[in-house]
């Protein structure tokens, strides 16, 4: 008798990623059901107000900033890490991109200068995170906590705690536009989701991310440069912070050291209820997208119904615990 054949087969795509299959569908189904319930509650309590196209766009716009950051967070967590500094990096990127210096350069060379500096600052912060973690062997929690403190501090120093207003009309016009009725930042969010899904599920980079998060020693023995890969993951998360900074800059027409406060918690929550394992090795971009949509729709429904953010936070907490309990159930059923 061959022991190989004894066990019930499990297709990898079902549990690992987003490509469908029974387990993946079950888990994503849970998320879809949660979202549908929220929408039904929204329609029941607020009717046309909730279901209108304008409101849907409003939800998506709100989801965009935290959504983009959550995609970056999905990669870091799948790779076995955590990034607490995303909100602070976003703040620093937004401040750096809106200093009078950057803005006057933008007047000369076009608003792309502001975009590039936001992306560069975000990526650079992520790189520092990655290097400290991978080569300095500092625990991710501590390294990114340090980045959280210092990036926001630096942002406060640069901005002198003032809100920096964007004077460049080209920037606000471009990112404030709504081609075919869809805001540019929502389109950006969609691109990041599609790009993130592709990167995680269809590239060697993604494959190695699962390996590094699932079993770093095995990944190392397979010839993967685990340290370098870790650096890439944090740099990627930093880049998404830069993108989110540009989006928030366009939404607020400002850069400020207070932008993105507590964003890290929302992002981690969205990633975890989406089904990415906090211990690494399993991750799903589609799940994260649902996680973000569930939270933003929840916020929207509560706003439409005049409910306080305090009760909303309680509901959020309940959802997180229920989602993680469900996730454990599914994981246990698998083994």
């Amino acid at each position: 008798m061959s022991t190989v054949q004894q066990e019930e087969s499990t297709e990898v795509t079902k549990t690992r990623g987003d490509s469908g299959g029974s387990l993946g569908v079950v888990r994503n189904l849970g998320l879809v059901i949660a979202l549908v319930i929220l929408c039904v509650v929204g329609v029941m309590t607020s009717g046309d107000q909730f279901a209108s196209k304008d409101n849907v766009i409003t939800i998506l716009r709100l989801a965009s900033v935290v959504g983009v950051v959550s995609i970056g967070m999905t990669f870091v967590i799948t790779g076995g890490g955590i990034d607490l500094s995303v909100g602070a990096i976003l703040a620093l990127s937004s401040v750096w991109a809106t200093t009078t210096g950057t803005q006057s350069m933008a007047d000369d060379y076009g608003w792309i200068v502001m975009v590039l500096s936001a992306l560069l600052v975000g990526t650079a912060c992520g790189l520092i995170n990655g290097i400290v973690i991978a080569y300095g062997k500092v625990v991710p929690f501590i390294a990114t906590l340090a980045m959280l403190a210092s990036a926001r501090g630096l942002a406060e120093i640069i901005a002198d705690r003032k809100t920096q207003i964007i004077r460049n009309q080209g920037f606000t016009d471009f990112f404030g536009a709504e081609p075919l009725g869809i805001p540019v930042i929502v389109i950006m969010f969609a691109l990041v989701v599609v790009g993130g899904w592709f990167l995680l599920n269809r590239t060697t980079f993604g494959r190695r991310t699962f390996a590094v998060g699932g079993n770093p020693e095995a990944a190392r023995l397979a010839g993967i440069k685990v340290q370098r890969h870790t650096v890439y993951l944090y740099a990627l998360a930093g880049l998404t912070c830069g993108i989110a900074a540009v989006m928030l800059m366009s939404r607020t027409t400002t850069g400020s050291s207070t932008h993105g406060t507590l964003l890290e918690l929302d992002a981690i929550a969205a990633v975890v209820i989406g089904g990415t394992l906090l211990s690494g090795g399993r991750g799903t971009v589609v799940g994260t997208l649902f996680g973000v949509l569930i939270f933003t729709t929840l916020t929207n429904v509560f706003t439409l119904n005049n409910l306080s953010t305090s009760s909303q936070n309680v509901a959020k907490g309940v959802i997180i615990v229920v989602a993680v309990l469900l996730q454990q159930r599914i994981a246990n059923r698998k083994t």
Binding site: I59, L62, R251, T252, T258, H259, S308, T309, S310
Partner: peptide, 12 residues
């Protein structure tokens, strides 16, 4: 729409 220190949310 009660109290928030998150500009993204207040805008929304």
């Amino acid at each position: 729409a009660e109290g928030t220190n998150d500009v993204n949310l207040q805008i929304s």
